[in-house]
């Protein structure tokens, strides 16, 4: 049996919101160390990897490995009913045919409950090598989101090139071209948190990526910062780390070639 309680239902809401345009259904694999989801889009261009650590839950218990096959349209409907500061308790018995959601307001004066039918999903898992990328860029997720939104109007392919001093995001369209260059910096955002751009380059890199997917993966609500890992001719990795050791949401995106 699985039972997990998240202090904020909004955490799961944001995750589902961020992936639902890429995947329509996926297996949540649950064991005593946490919950993992790995799923590709239908065109096998992008892969979503979610890891939620049991330690990041307020309460977590899973005595037997259990796979929950979830339809994201149904899950979105359920999560829409949670207020942002509600807590969320997930429950499933070993049969894995239903998932139960309980949302509870902070004051405990409102409790809502939903039961969702699960499905059997024949998923193909890929083994993702632990790659030491040539370029690691850490930046504000709001900045990354702004760059993707701005440049998406100009073309379908984003070229990202990085050297030791800067990273350049560029796009060439039929009638116009646009680019944004970022250099390492440190600024304070409106919450008085330090938001820095750091660029670590072992080897100069130049990759072409689908603008449509990048725009989907640029999501400032998931975490304050995002990490981009790049290397020539290797799928790029876009990574969001959740606070309080809850885990990570990774997007892998296959490059475009000539």
């Amino acid at each position: 049996m699985l039972e997990g309680r998240l202090t904020h239902a909004s955490t799961l809401k944001k995750i589902v919101e961020a992936v639902k345009d890429v995947i329509s259904e996926a297996n949540f694999d649950c064991n005593d160390s946490g919950i993992t989801l790995q799923c590709m889009d239908s065109g096998h261009v992008a892969l979503v990897l979610l890891q939620l650590n049991s330690d990041g839950f307020e309460d977590y218990r899973c005595d037997r490995n259990i796979t929950l096959g979830i339809n994201f349209a149904a899950l979105t409907k359920v999560l829409k009913c949670a207020a942002n500061d509600d807590s969320l308790t997930l429950k499933a018995d070993d049969s894995g045919d239903r998932l139960n959601f309980v949302f509870e307001s902070q004051k405990g004066d409102r409790v809502s409950e939903f039961d969702m039918k699960l499905m059997t999903i024949d998923a193909e898992l890929l083994s993702i090598p632990d790659n030491d990328y040539d370029v690691t860029i850490k930046m504000s997720s709001a900045e990354f989101s702004r760059i993707c939104k701005d440049l998406a109007n100009f073309g379908e392919t984003m070229n990202i090139s990085a050297d030791k001093e800067s990273v350049r995001f560029g796009v060439e369209g039929d009638v116009s071209a646009a680019s944004v260059v970022l250099r390492p910096n440190e600024t304070i955002d409106e919450d008085e948190k330090i938001v820095s751009t750091s660029i670590m380059v072992k080897k100069e890199t130049n990759v072409n990526l689908s603008m449509k997917f990048l725009k989907t993966f640029a999501n400032s609500s998931l975490a304050g910062s995002v990490t981009l890992e790049l290397q020539d001719d290797i799928p790029c990795l876009i990574k969001y780390v959740f606070p309080n050791d809850l885990g990570v949401l990774c997007f892998y995106l296959a490059p475009k070639g000539d």
């Binding site: 261009v45 898992l125 072409n208 296959a254």
Partner: peptide, 14 residues
């Protein structure tokens, strides 16, 4: 135009 590659050519089946 650039051609979109698929992840299958980089990651093997587990």
């Amino acid at each position: 135009a650039k051609v979109q590659n698929r992840l299958d050519s980089y990651f093997k089946k587990a």
